[in-house]
Amino acid sequence: MLTLGIDIGSATSKVAVMRGGTVVLATALRRAGIGSDGPGAVLRDALRLAGCQMEDIAAVAATGYGRNMMEEADYRISELSCHGRGAHFLAPETRTLIDVGGQDAKVIRLDGRGRIMEFMMNDKCAAGTGRFLEVMAQVLGCGIQEFSGLAEGQEAAPISSTCAVFAETEVISRLAAGTPRGSIAAGINLSIAKRVGGLAMRMGVVPAVMMSGGVAQNASLVDMLGRELGADILVAKECQFCGALGAALLAWEKTRASGRKEP
């Protein structure tokens, strides 16, 4: 049975196609999220990579903030459950999952089957999210991909504000004062690590800890967060697909449980 999970976030759209709830046939990502042509395009990409048609898919589960706009979806599941199940698939020992996405940061406690037991999320503002990093990268004149490398091994310049607006002003004044860009990037990472770390510690950190979402590709930030929490942090190479994989898995489980026939 083929199932498809689509994770429509604020900044990116991701798809995973799976067979039998165990084999990943394809994953695809587009840097265009809710309200764009990203979801449609990434769906086509993933089907092409998996070598199948939409008609071959037994069930589709949508997750992310755009989940309710996905007309083809058989299931609409919160990204909390999907990320949890995806993390369990990638590393079954995961008990604490930290996901930093485009517009929110969440800490999820998982049981031994990858089900959510408890979660905490950031508040309405963009502090400590991927969007915050994007804005800061723009101020430093680099792309989000370069940002991590820029911060690598640098001493962190203090960036006290986690508000995107105030931090932008702070970064500009640091640049004007001649502080190296790498130090500023490291300072920005540290401010996010402290904020997300605080969220995690409010809930309590149970190992093993995994980080997912695009921000998990920022190695310097992951390292700082690990130090904040006093824990090693697992980062799977499919960290951006945690939600989509979880959605595909849950689609498979739900379809099997409902006894629905395959196409």
């Binding site: 599941i77 919160s78 909390l80 089900r115 959510i116 408890e118």
Partner: peptide, 10 residues
């Protein structure tokens, strides 16, 4: 909505 759906799933 996400928080409430997450709570329901728990």
């Amino acid at each position: 909505e996400t928080r409430i759906q997450g709570l329901e799933e728990i």
